[in-house]
């Protein structure tokens, strides 16, 4: 299972995601990358993220993504 940071790096290899607290404002991921990220997270972790939760706040940084995944019962290896 890939970790979140590896997934993000696959989508935008040019950025160091560990260094950003706001992926959206810093221009690391745009609205389309967000959709790709959701689809990849769902595949990797076997979850279905609700459409209403696909909002920038839930994908701002690594902590936000991990918190979202925890809501879906994913707590290990993220």
């Amino acid at each position: 299972m890939k970790k979140v940071i590896e997934i993000l790096h696959d989508i935008r290899p040019e950025f160091d995601f560990a260094q950003s607290e706001d992926f959206i404002s810093d221009g690391y991921i745009d609205s389309f990358d967000l959709i790709t990220l959701v689809a990849t997270l769902e595949k990797e972790y076997g979850v279905k993220i609700r459409g209403t939760e696909i909002v920038p706040e839930n994908f701002l940084n690594l902590d936000a993504i991990k918190n979202l995944l925890k809501k879906y019962g994913v707590s290990n290896e993220i």
Partner: peptide, 8 residues
């Protein structure tokens, strides 16, 4: 990036 978008 564009190809991933195409699939999703």
């Amino acid at each position: 990036r564009i190809k991933r978008l195409k699939i999703v």
